[in-house]
Design a protein around this nucleic acid. Structure first.
Length: 684
DNA sequence: CAGTGAGCGAGCTTCCGCTTGACTT
């Protein structure tokens, strides 16, 4: 009897099914050793020796690993093939002591992959373990040195870290960009033109006010006549048209109204749109946010249940790799279901562009594409929705591109160049999968049909339409775009995106607005500015990328890990002492309510955020100690008692929930916003 | 169900990354 040790219990179950009675399979359930929670656990005086101790919650697991390995002939340590997995392997080896073990790795959960791995065992890669130690020690030093500094200089309970503080920084800097942004006026000019020699009944004359108000730009109702189309002004005197105000626009309109219109060029070309690569954690959470409006936490939770049911491959992954057998099945399915023209000659293989990808797993895909029916008691509809998204994305990625005929018509009128573009899908390809799926974002712009005109054709002007526009500020981050940006910067991992987003909200650094976009709080701004001013290098967007570069060198055995940490820590520690001594307490901006304090009649009422959320106090604190409850009303009556208002509250742990303002008389409480539930349940 | 902020000063807060339950008010 042999023992195989993996990280995930679900993976262990799957392997036991494959391998039969000769193998016992156990799981570590993640890390089994870590630095202690209650102390630094890094001996900065002695080469940063880390104090790795048994994880308390894993005491039973560790006991089991010990006893099972004793019984086993050989123990195969099959933790994930990445930096963290190698550290887990090392920790398992330490725990099982003298038992005979071998280290094996596989990237796919198939019988063949495991058998192949068993044939090719290796030793534990000490350099890779060192790289993990360096990563762990660095994160501990940053987090456990800076957080107490914040307690001292800003407020108790705050936190800072290599990942969370950069996430907050992104949100703060985006807000400043938006504040700084000044909308600039510009004008776009559209001309409605018609191929000559064709008449239309009820053709609009001139630019009456009624017609202007009906105009909705390209693709509006005026397009019923197939010979009428809309061109937009692109160039003036061969230079890009830039119209800044109404005066300029009016002048151009007056010129355009008396010009002759001629087709200068007609360009037709074929455009292909390739399918998207299969899902990773990052793209899956982005897609579920766009299609269903889900938070990353919800998506990951539903994905976890699909994974545990054996319906999808592992959901915390940065890899685009696909098992060859699964691809072959998908190809057979595509050919049978949709026909040969949908099947590429060769399978599509995708490569990740993410530099820090560890690719320990596969991309996220269904384990069995022939399985359409989902039976999952815990999540039901949600599981079905996410599974459908994953299923389609996987099938699509192995299908032929969709093909469009794109037509560009250039029209000249005096010194003005105007253009119309339109495209028509002539082969749907992978887009076939998305047809008829409500709520699916197809990813294709509206199709516009253009009349059959030739170079040199004269056109008749029907109407010129100037449209005033303003440049738009950059959009705020939402969960999806924040994860996308963090991934691009190489900051955070698939297993930490959702938890990081929770952390920065629980710490009151950021909030979501009604459109689920992140807005920094006064505390978030104060902490960010304090950190960026004093520790600019640590929270530079490049810091993690540089760290990853050094970790790679450590993993290759070209750099001792202690040197990396020393080079970071020495200047960091100096700065720490300097700030501790010389920096004053940080002031947090308060929001004014615009009312006098009812107690002292001198101060003004302000909103402050304390340990239990927002409350109202006097601006003259500590001289005046007046406080009052701040009721953050959601805007609906309590669904239970129908008398009180639903208000936003926080648990002692900082999690947001919704309660009744009449508490404790009414005990209504919910994790979900009843306002949004109501909107959803109203039949349209 | 009051508590929150400052500072006084007991004891405590905190990181990232790997993995699931336990089960929130």
């Amino acid at each position: 009897m042999n023992l195989i040790i993996v990280e995930s219990p679900t993976k262990a179950r799957t392997l036991s099914r494959f391998l039969g009675k000769d193998f016992n399979v156990e799981a570590t359930t993640g890390h089994i050793k870590d630095l202690p929670k209650s102390q630094l656990g890094v001996d900065v005086e002695h080469d940063f020796a880390p104090l790795y101790i048994d994880v308390v919650k894993r005491a039973d697991t560790i006991k089991k690993l010990k006893s099972e390995s004793k019984k086993a002939n050989i123990t195969y340590i099959a933790s994930d093939p990445d930096r963290e997995g190698e550290a887990i392997a090392e920790h398992v080896a330490e725990v099982i002591g003298k038992a005979k073990f071998k280290r094996i790795v596989f990237h796919e959960i198939t019988k063949e992959a495991v058998e192949e791995a068993i044939k090719n065992p290796r030793d534990i890669d000490k350099n890779l373990v060192d790289a993990q130690t360096a990563r762990r020690v660095l994160d501990r030093l940053v987090g456990y040195k800076l957080s107490p500094l914040l307690w001292k200089k800003v407020r108790r309970g705050l936190s800072a870290g290599r990942v969370q503080s950069v996430a907050v920084r992104l949100i703060v800097e985006k807000e400043r960009e938006i504040e700084k942004f000044k909308a600039e006026e510009y004008w776009e000019i559209y001309c409605e033109v018609k191929k000559e020699g064709v008449t239309r009944v009820g053709e609009p004359q001139g630019r009456g006010p009624e017609l202007v108000s009906r105009w909705k730009g390209p693709g509006a109702d005026e397009r019923q006549d197939p010979n009428v189309f809309i061109v937009s002004l692109v160039k003036i005197d061969d230079k890009k048209a830039e119209i800044h105000d109404k005066k300029e626009a009016d002048f151009i309109v007056s010129e355009l109204e008396k010009s002759d219109y001629k087709v200068a060029e007609v360009k037709k070309r074929e455009v292909k749109k390739n399918p998207y690569p299969p899902f990773t954690t990052s793209t899956m959470t982005q897609s579920a946010a766009r299609n269903f409006g889900w938070s990353s936490k919800k998506t990951m939770s539903v994905a976890q249940s699909l994974y545990e049911e054996g319906l999808i491959t592992y959901h915390r992954t940065d890899s685009l790799n696909l098992n060859a057998g699964a691809v072959a099945k998908a190809r057979a399915y595509i050919e049978k279901e949709y026909g040969k023209e949908y099947l590429p000659e060769k399978p599509h293989f995708y490569k990740t562009h993410s530099k820090n990808a560890q690719e320990a797993h596969e991309a996220i895909r269904p384990t069995d594409i022939f399985k359409h029916e989902i039976k999952n008691t815990k999540y039901e509809k949600d599981a079905e929705k996410l599974y459908g998204l994953i299923w389609r994305r996987f099938i699509e990625c192995q299908m032929n591109p969709s093909i469009y005929d794109e037509t560009t018509i250039d029209v000249t009128a005096a010194k003005y160049l105007l253009r119309a573009t339109g495209s028509i899908m002539k082969f749907d390809g992978w887009m076939r999968i998305r047809k008829g799926i409500p709520g699916q974002v197809a990813g294709v712009d509206g199709e516009a049909t253009l009349p059959d005109v030739q170079e040199g054709d004269s056109l008749k002007l029907i109407k010129v339409n100037p449209t005033q526009k303003f440049t738009q500020p950059p959009p705020r981050y939402n969960e999806a775009s924040l994860i996308k940006t963090l991934e691009k910067l190489g900051i955070g991992r698939p297993s930490t995106y959702a938890p990081t987003i929770s952390t920065i909200q629980i710490r009151n650094y950021v909030e979501k607005n009604d459109s689920k976009q992140f807005i920094p709080t006064a505390i978030g701004i104060a902490v960010n500015d304090f950190l960026i001013t004093n520790f600019p290098e640590t929270f530079d967007y490049q810091f993690t990328a540089n760290m990853e570069g050094e970790l790679d060198d450590i993993a290759k055995g070209e750099l001792p890990w202690v040197k990396t940490i020393k080079d970071f820590y020495n200047p960091f520690d100096k700065k720490l002492a300097d700030v501790e001594k010389n920096s004053g307490r940080v002031k947090i901006e308060t929001e004014k309510l615009g009312q006098k304090c009812p107690e002292c009649k001198e101060g003004e009422l302000v909103i402050r955020t304390g340990r239990f959320g927002k409350f109202i106090s006097c601006s003259r604190f500590p001289d005046c100690k007046y406080t009052a409850k701040y009721l953050e009303k959601v805007g609906v009556k309590c669904p239970d008692c129908k008398i009180g208002d639903v208000i936003v509250k926080k648990t002692s742990k900082g999690r947001k929930f919704f309660g009744c303002s009449r508490y404790p008389k009414c005990k209504y409480a919910s994790w979900r916003n009843p306002k949004k539930e109501d909107v959803k349940s109203v039949p349209v």
